[in-house]
Amino acid sequence: MTIAGLYNYWIVILLMMTGFYVVIASGNLVKKIIGLNLFQASVFILYISLGKIADGHAPILQAGISNYSNPLPHVLILTAIVVGVATTSLGLALVVRIREAYDTVEEDEIHDQDESM
């Protein structure tokens, strides 16, 4: 029962660490941003998993149903998703400008160019 009860959290941690690994190990700025998005989506799944109740229903009130899943995590994540894409777009815009200024999006090449200036 323990494994079934914690399986969601463990997969979330695996996804989170995958995103984290991409962010710190990859030198490509676009791939880093995709890694951040992987990390972010894993947090969304964690929150929504916490809100689920056994045999619950979606929190849209109907006559005859009394067992609803917790709506509060849904609200937090709903706004976080849209804010997430807005900040991702800002990051990607910065990457585009870096590419135009340095002609590369590889982290170490940018660093070398800064050093040689």
Binding site: V82, A86, A93, V96
Partner: peptide, 16 residues
Amino acid sequence: TVGAVMITVFLGFAGR
């Protein structure tokens, strides 16, 4: 606001 920002962002990237 959300709709306008999303269209703006798309135009920014695609129009580049």
